[in-house]
């Protein structure tokens, strides 16, 4: 009985090939667009996370700081909430690092005598407080400690990047909502057209005692099948596009720099299920209106 219903729904879809194809393509396009936003955000978030892992603050010391003061300060910093480690970087070490970083131009530094760099602590955060808010708060706290000249951290650009992502996320939600409504509308319209084309049949079925539930069932099955097809095709399209782009990327840039992934399996499945649910709701809207009459 169940498989019979399914077979009939497929038959119905084939009987209205044009209408159903258009509907499936529309659903697929919506799914493609919405899921490409999802793909972008998951990768952007991952990227942001790896960058945030490198979050550290540099605490520059007052030139008059004695060795004893320094030990006190180190103790005081490590006592603070969210600090995992405070490593001392002497001015000598800092200069040596700088020379390595500058490579051939390091000869410029030779003329700098005395060494202009201050002593510093490199403060790393414990994993659970690697957020912009945490590091900002921490920096303020460290600035208040004695012998601290200045605290520096990579706030500016990570903060900006986060803001851009958040703004895009908003656009993504808005677009997602818009496509959701549009898809719903299109599915509902398809079902309405199917209903009109079968008006006589439905009227007769009612006369011989079938319940509305029985009449609705094939439409729901059809709606869910359309949703599933649209979802699967949309996600396949996205996968293909992703594969194509990442191939190019990997050839051009080093793989480690931009390590992008496709959506996880559960999200992919979730999007397809969501598209089936849209098919169902689209049916629901049309049937509710139609069968009242």
């Amino acid at each position: 009985m169940k498989s019979l219903l399914f077979k009939r729904a497929l038959q119905d879809i084939l009987n209205n090939r044009f209408l159903n194809t258009v509907t499936v393509i529309t659903i697929a396009l919506s799914v493609l667009i919405v899921s490409s936003f999802a793909l972008f955000f998951t990768n952007a978030n991952e990227l942001l996370d790896t960058w945030k892992k490198g979050i550290r603050a540099l605490v520059y010391l007052n030139p008059e700081t004695t060795d004893a003061n320094r030990l006190d300060l180190k103790y005081n910093i490590q006592k603070l909430n969210g600090v995992s480690e405070a490593r001392f970087i002497s001015r000598k070490e800092a200069l040596a690092q700088m020379k390595v970083q500058m490579g051939r131009q390091s000869s410029l530094l030779e003329s700098l005598k005395p060494n202009p760099l201050p002593d510093a602590f490199e403060v790393r955060l414990s994993p659970d407080s690697q957020t912009m808010a945490a590091i900002e708060k921490l920096s303020k706290a460290i600035e208040l400690l004695p012998h601290v000249d200045e605290v520096e951290y990579g706030r500016q650009w990570i903060g900006k990047f986060t803001n851009i992502i958040n703004m895009l996320r908003f656009v993504g939600y808005a677009m997602g909502g818009l496509f959701l409504v549009a898809t719903l509308f299109i599915v509902a319209n398809t079902v309405r057209l199917l209903l009109y084309s079968r008006q006589e049949e439905i009227a007769i079925m009612r006369l011989v005692g079938t319940t509305d539930r029985f009449i609705k069932m094939p439409f729901y099955i059809q709606g869910v099948i359309l949703g599933a097809l649209g979802g699967i095709i949309g996600m396949s399209g996205l996968y293909f596009a992703f594969w194509f782009v990442s191939e190019k990327f990997h050839r051009g840039l080093s793989a480690e720099l931009l390590d992008i992934h496709f959506l996880p399996l559960d999200v992919t499945a979730g999007i397809i299920v969501g598209s089936m649910i849209i098919g169902w709701i689209g049916c629901y809207l049309s049937l509710k209106q139609f069968l009242k009459a």
């Binding site: 049949e201 007769i204 009612r206 006369l207 011989v208 005692g209 079938t210």
Partner: peptide, 21 residues
């Protein structure tokens, strides 16, 4: 109505057969 109509067997003057079935 379905509950009532299930108790009935109706032969319509104009048959009312579903043409697509």
């Amino acid at each position: 109505a379905p509950e009532l109509r299930r108790k009935l067997g109706i032969i319509f003057q104009d048959y009312k057969l579903i043409p697509t079935k």
